[in-house]
Amino acid sequence: MNYIFDGIKDAFELIFSLDKELYEIILLSLFVSFTATFISLIISVPTGLMMATHEFKFKRFTSKILYSLMGLPPVVLGLFVFLILARNGPLGTFQLLFTPSAMIIAQVLLVTPIITSLILNNCSDISKEIISTCRTLGANRFEILIKLIKEVKVYLFIALVAGFSRAISEVGAVMIVGGNIKGQTRVMTTFIALNNSQGNYAKSIAMGLVLISLSFIFNSIAYHYVIGDKL
């Protein structure tokens, strides 16, 4: 048991000692996950809202595919991205493998179905009501779009937080496509996995605490928004 308490004590010392490597890893993790979530949002918000508000052929089939992709194993996705970006792969000429760009690509592919599905699921019924109400009050298409985004902003935010949480806590895919290279592609999750396997529990616990804290902060912001608008 002592190694756990010693690990926690050492972890706090490590966090407050402003260890350069630790903070570089945190910053790289945040950069990769924020960028991936941002790109996913650009894809997911219009796609999710369009799917939620329009009826089209194969909508049910498309939705099923999307929901299935939510549960895609990250390691399989990582392998897929690896094969695509490998030197002999279709996008091998761009030499993206084992770079932060590859990790961003993997996270985008992982997070986009999650954000899109959440928007689709949460906004389907309410969006139709909002659009009908706006139309009967004389709003034009642009005004309807603005109102729609304002009305469903809580759901968009929940989807954003869920996507970001998924991205930042991801380990399998980023390990495969990033390679966990020190100072290059090492992020919080791969750092924890590596140090744990080497028996450096203090470092693993320190990074684990940072990850939990970040997750708590982002979820608190989401909670604040939901409470503010809903209760």
């Binding site: 909002i130 009908s132 109400t133 009305e151």
Partner: peptide
Amino acid sequence: HYEFMKDITYVSQNPYIFN
């Protein structure tokens, strides 16, 4: 025509109320 929509309004049984 789309312009007519500015002069038509419909209140449903369970109206949607904006935030």
